[in-house]
Amino acid sequence: MANENGKTVKIKLVSSIIPTEGELEQYEMWLEGSCIEKGESHYLRYEEVQEELPIQTTIKLNDKRGFINRSGGVNMRLPLNPGMRENGHYESPFGSLPIVTDTHQLAIDVQKNEKVSGRFNTQYDLIIGGNSVGRYTLDIQFTEVQ
């Protein structure tokens, strides 16, 4: 079991977006963060920098539901609950925006051998103002660093 700071992990994050009008956009990031286990859930925490602003991200991972919380350069709460539409929010220096997620898929596989490793995958529609702006896929792989 990890201490309150968790185990240090390397994270490969691949985000794919198919906008309602437009072509596939795909982003890949390699990050270092921490993984904390609490009950049946795992929490990945990492920091990324966008437009010179640091953003702290926490992702709750389990096979029933999850969420993505971001704070710093942007503030966001993105709930992930398969089969349900959930309200979230997105705040940036330009203003606040209510958002809705319609989660189609949510899966996690965690291995606890000598090192903790795992994979998390989710697919959801992002709805703004009652209309889908696109289908988002997030694939995260993480491996403990010794």
Rank of each mutant, 00 (worst) to 15 (best):
T8N: 10
K10G: 13
I11R: 07
K12Y: 03
K12V: 08
L13F: 10
V14C: 11
I18N: 03
I18D: 00
P19Q: 04
E23L: 03
L24M: 12
Y27S: 08
E28L: 09
S34W: 08
E37T: 15
G39Q: 09
S41E: 07
S41M: 06
H42I: 01
Y43R: 11
Y46W: 05
E48H: 11
E48S: 09
V49M: 07
Q50C: 05
E51K: 04
E52G: 01
P54N: 07
I55K: 09
I55Q: 09
T57P: 06
T58V: 15
I59M: 14
K60M: 13
N62F: 10
D63G: 10
D63P: 00
F67S: 10
F67C: 08
S71D: 07
G73K: 04
V74Q: 05
N75S: 13
M76D: 07
L78K: 03
P79F: 12
L80I: 08
L80T: 00
E86I: 00
G88Y: 09
S92F: 06
G95H: 11
G95C: 07
L97D: 02
I99R: 01
T103Y: 05
T103K: 05
Q105M: 06
I108S: 11
N113T: 14
R119I: 11
F120V: 13
N121S: 13
L126K: 02
I127E: 05
I127P: 08
V133H: 01
G134E: 00
R135E: 04
T137L: 03
L138P: 09
D139G: 01
D139Q: 09
